[in-house]
């Protein structure tokens, strides 16, 4: 009986979303009187024993270079073996891109009930019930898992990342990985930018900005705040911005600590992708824009006047140029 947390990484770096999953796993283990362990497939540059500071006693590692690239079938096979050999009965993933690829496969392979998109620790007093977002963030569901082995994927930015003291024991696991089905041909990464789903602050622009040439101030505000940039659906559809920046019901759903919407009216489909943000700021010329009803702070005014002044104020506050 233990909690096993899948540790996701890319380019040698452990993803922040997986650190959140480790904290969640440690808290879950503490509340159920068991221990939390980690499992990492592949290799990273970081010393894995440091992950003990998140309350993790043991880190299992299958240190094969072929596992540095995600192949859903290979990963689910290796993880199923790891679950068996560690005796884990709860497996935690981040509900990030890798989690979405692997967790359902592992669920089917182990016939272990899966709740994806958890936002809280499970209620274990009477059964095992996990709260998750449904209806694209417009509601929550409490979902009960009936199987002995349980799998949870944790929404990003839903559980606080807290580091304490401690060193984890790193244990090599000898599990043979089959040859991957998938061959990577090329990868493009927008360097120097914060990935949208991992960002704590997101600055987003809509049709109110009138054209792609006006995105300079959105990018500048994002830069001074250390934020990622996003956009509404009409903006992505008009090719003003790449479609991987589109947040909303049919784009990416995000839950940053701060979401700043500039020139976005706030259609219900857009809100569905951002309503889990902790603080929402809306800047719009139209006082009737529906987004103000979902916002925590707002300015009714011309974005072209207001945003540069906000950038100045942030620069002053942070003492940056």
């Amino acid at each position: 009986m233990s909690v096993l947390v899948f540790i996701d990484h890319s380019a040698g770096q452990i993803k922040k979303s997986s650190l959140e999953a480790l904290c969640y796993g440690a808290a879950l283990a503490a509340s159920t009187g068991t221990t939390a362990e980690g499992i990492l497939l592949g290799t990273v540059s970081q010393d894995l024993s440091e992950l003990g500071c998140y309350g993790i006693g043991k880190i299992h590692q299958v240190a094969s270079d072929t596992l540095n690239n995600l192949d859903a079938r290979v990963f689910s096979t290796v993880l199923a073996e790891a679950v068996r050999s560690t005796g884990a009965n709860i497996i935690v993933f981040s509900n990030n891109l890798s989690g979405k690829a692997i967790a359902p496969r592992l669920s089917a392979r182990l016939k272990a009930g899966l709740v994806s998109g958890a936002i809280d620790l499970p209620q274990v007093a009477n059964g095992f019930t996990v709260r998750k977002t449904v209806f694209s963030g417009k509601a929550f569901a409490n979902v009960s898992i009936h199987t002995e082995i349980k799998i949870i994927t944790l929404n990003q930015n839903a559980f606080p990342l807290t580091a304490g003291q401690g060193t984890a024991q790193v244990i090599p696991l000898d599990i043979k990985a089959a040859a991957p089905d998938v061959k990577t041909v090329s990868a493009t990464q927008s360097s120097g930018q914060v990935p949208l789903t991992e960002a704590e602050i997101v600055v987003s622009g809509g049709r109110g900005l009138k054209g792609p040439e006006n995105w300079g101030m959105v990018e500048e505000l994002a830069r001074v705040l250390g934020a990622a940039t996003a956009c509404s659906r009409p903006v992505a559809d008009a090719h003003w911005r790449p479609h991987n920046e589109h947040v909303g019901q049919t784009g990416i759903a995000i839950a940053p600590n701060l979401y700043i919407a500039i020139g976005i009216s706030g259609a219900i489909q857009h809100l569905a992708g951002v309503n889990r943000s902790k603080v929402i700021v809306v800047i719009n010329q139209d006082p009737e824009a529906p987004f103000f009803k979902a916002a925590d702070y707002g300015i009714v005014g011309d974005a072209f006047v207001v945003v540069p002044k906000i950038i100045e104020a942030v620069k002053q506050l942070k003492g940056v140029a």
Binding site: N142, S144, F292
Partner: peptide, 20 residues
Amino acid sequence: TLTSVVSFELPPAKAGVKLV
């Protein structure tokens, strides 16, 4: 059937926007 929905909840209403 490995899971079942026990109940649904609606998120708490926002306190209202603070306009600047």
